[in-house]
């Protein structure tokens, strides 16, 4: 009697195990297939218009002649400048918080809590802040610099948090080993802490930058324009961005514009793919060197 009920419970458990396994598998398949359908749709619509002249031409009101060059360059300028600003500031802040700040001070505690919170603030809020502070108060105007500063604010919390995590992950025994040799704090940071934390810092920073690459909302606030027919050649120029140009095209009625919008999306996806692969490769390379 007891034996059969035990066996029944076992059978029930095995059934539930299988049931949930298939349920989760179905959930994964569903999300992957939605993604595949989206990508497939974009590729089908866009591949026909994607050629070299699409990348090297100016936007135009005639879709068959239109290209993305100003937007592509605008995106590269803004993201490049954002990287130059946000990575040094973010990593510097992380080093200060982990290695210099007194962890018992109220200043440290407030900073720590708030940086975490800042990462959750909607990006449009950073747009408003950028407009008030950089564009109007500092009179930088609706330029690439203002856009990059705004995006830097947006992704700084993410860079700081991931850098802090990477620095925390450096074993304290290694730090102590360096200090015990009479090596100063700064040389310990450059000698063992940063080299060991670098893979984590780079991965976090590049992923943050690739998120910034897809942002349009805060940059509309600080004056990126949807349609320009000149190329940026300095940080005080006006600019447009890939997401904005794509949005501009999708909002037009003609079918031909929908097609080149899809081609623009493909270019964005390629850019994101490149940055993510770079992150993976950098991580691999530095890890190999460390081992």
């Amino acid at each position: 009697m007891g034996k059969t009920s035990k066996r029944r419970r076992l059978a029930q458990r095995l059934f539930l195990n299988k049931f949930f396994e298939y349920l989760f598998l179905a959930a994964i398949l569903l999300s992957i297939s939605v993604l595949l359908i989206l990508v497939g749709d974009v590729l089908r619509k866009g591949l026909g218009s994607l050629d070299w002249s699409f990348i090297t031409s100016m936007p135009s009101s005639r879709p068959e002649r239109a290209g993305i060059l100003p937007a592509l360059l605008g995106t590269l300028w803004v993201i490049g400048l954002t990287a130059l600003i946000s990575i040094p500031v973010g990593v510097g802040t992380a080093i200060y918080l982990e290695e210099y700040a007194n962890k018992r001070s109220w200043f440290f505690r407030i900073m720590n809590i708030n940086i975490g919170n800042l990462a959750g603030v909607p990006s449009i809020v950073y747009g408003i802040l950028g407009l008030t502070v950089f564009v109007q108060l500092l009179k930088i105007g609706p330029t690439i610099l203002a856009g990059a500063l705004t995006l830097s604010l947006l992704i700084l919390p993410v860079i700081i948090v991931s850098s802090v995590e990477a620095i925390k992950a450096v074993p304290s025994s290694v730090k102590e080993g360096s200090y015990a040799l009479g090596v100063s704090r700064w040389r310990t940071i450059t000698g063992v802490i940063l080299p060991m934390a670098l893979p984590g810092i780079l991965t976090g920073s590049i992923l943050a930058l690739s998120r910034a690459m897809g942002e349009a909302a805060p940059l509309i606030m600080v004056g990126a324009v949807g349609f320009v027919t000149f190329l940026p050649d300095g940080i005080l120029d006006r600019y447009t961005l890939l997401p904005m140009l794509i949005y501009n095209w999708t909002s037009r009625p003609q079918d031909a514009f929908a097609q080149i919008a899809a081609a623009g999306i493909i270019v964005m996806m390629i850019l994101l793919l490149i940055t993510n692969i770079t992150a993976i490769l950098l991580r691999r390379k530095t890890q190999n060197r460390v081992e």
Binding site: V174, M196, V290, E291
Partner: peptide
């Protein structure tokens, strides 16, 4: 005054 620790802690 040099120091050696409980667990070997060579640098990477």
């Amino acid at each position: 005054i040099g120091m050696v620790f409980q667990k070997p802690n060579p640098f990477p």
